[in-house]
């Protein structure tokens, strides 16, 4: 556990040293702020004090940003050979994967934390459903975790950051758009499966304040799969 935290700290430090963290925070707050408050501007017209608009904007912003955050995590270690250094220390592949996952997740949580003024402003407009706000934020964190795990995996399969980014985005598009499109066109079991695989239904119900175990199972399963696949990619390199 201690080792995990040491690696996580190093990754966070690297995010801030490379300015990646600042760029992400500023762009994320800028984007979500701009679209939430100015461009759509419906937050004042929906006559409802909720953060639905913000959640949707953040949902899309994270979709594009997270792969940029994760693309470096393992590809760079593989490219420069530092992975050999790391894995010959008394730590396991799993610890390395979890540590890097946590670093990216913590950065996202920090970014989300900084949007708290949105909440405060909106709640001053009228009665706000605090439960929905809580489960909405939770949904954003879970979606982030899911995309971080996917990004970590794509970062483990290539030595090239750009390839890792594009690969993560391509996998993400399935969960973000394609499965949903398929589910509206398919019927029966296939329709049900694709509907379950699409993030939308899970995310929507959570932002409306419903926390269902089905949704939690969904998010945690994809996360776990991404991490396990990343781990096995690291292991595979050792027995070429």
């Amino acid at each position: 556990m201690k080792e995990i935290w040491i690696i996580t700290k190093r990754e966070l430090q690297a995010y801030f040293d490379s300015l990646m963290a600042y760029i992400l925070l500023i762009l994320f707050l800028g984007f979500s702020g701009f679209f939430t408050w100015i461009y759509g501007s419906d937050i004042f017209f929906v006559k409802q004090a909720n953060l639905q608009v913000f959640f949707n904007i953040a949902y899309w912003t994270l979709f594009f940003f997270i792969p940029a955050l994760t693309m470096r995590l393992l590809s760079e270690e593989n490219r420069s050979g530092t992975i050999e250094l790391l894995l010959t220390k008394p730590i396991s592949e799993w610890q390395v994967i979890v540590a890097k996952f946590l670093a990216a997740l913590l950065l996202i949580v920090a970014a989300l934390f900084l949007t708290l003024p949105y909440y405060i402003t909106v709640s001053s407009l009228g009665n706000i459903d605090n439960g929905a706000v809580f489960s909405g934020y939770l949904a954003l964190i879970l979606v982030s975790g899911m995309y971080i795990a996917i990004g970590l995996f794509t970062s483990s399969v290539t030595n090239n950051q750009i390839v890792a980014y594009l690969l993560a985005l391509s996998i993400g598009i399935f969960f973000q758009i394609i499965f949903q499109m398929l589910s509206t066109n398919l019927t029966g079991i296939l329709g049900g499966i694709t509907d379950y695989l699409s993030i939308n239904s899970h995310f929507d119900s959570m932002t409306r304040g419903v926390i269902d175990s089905r949704d939690l199972v969904y998010f945690f399963s994809v996360m776990l799969l991404g991490l396990v696949f990343s781990e096995s990619m690291l292991m595979k390199k050792r027995s070429v």
Partner: peptide, 18 residues
């Protein structure tokens, strides 16, 4: 191979830690 973006002393502290 080394973490090139780290200062020497931070790097060694990191290694000592793990």
């Amino acid at each position: 191979p080394l973490y090139e973006d780290m200062p020497v002393i931070d790097y060694l502290q990191f290694c000592a830690g793990i």
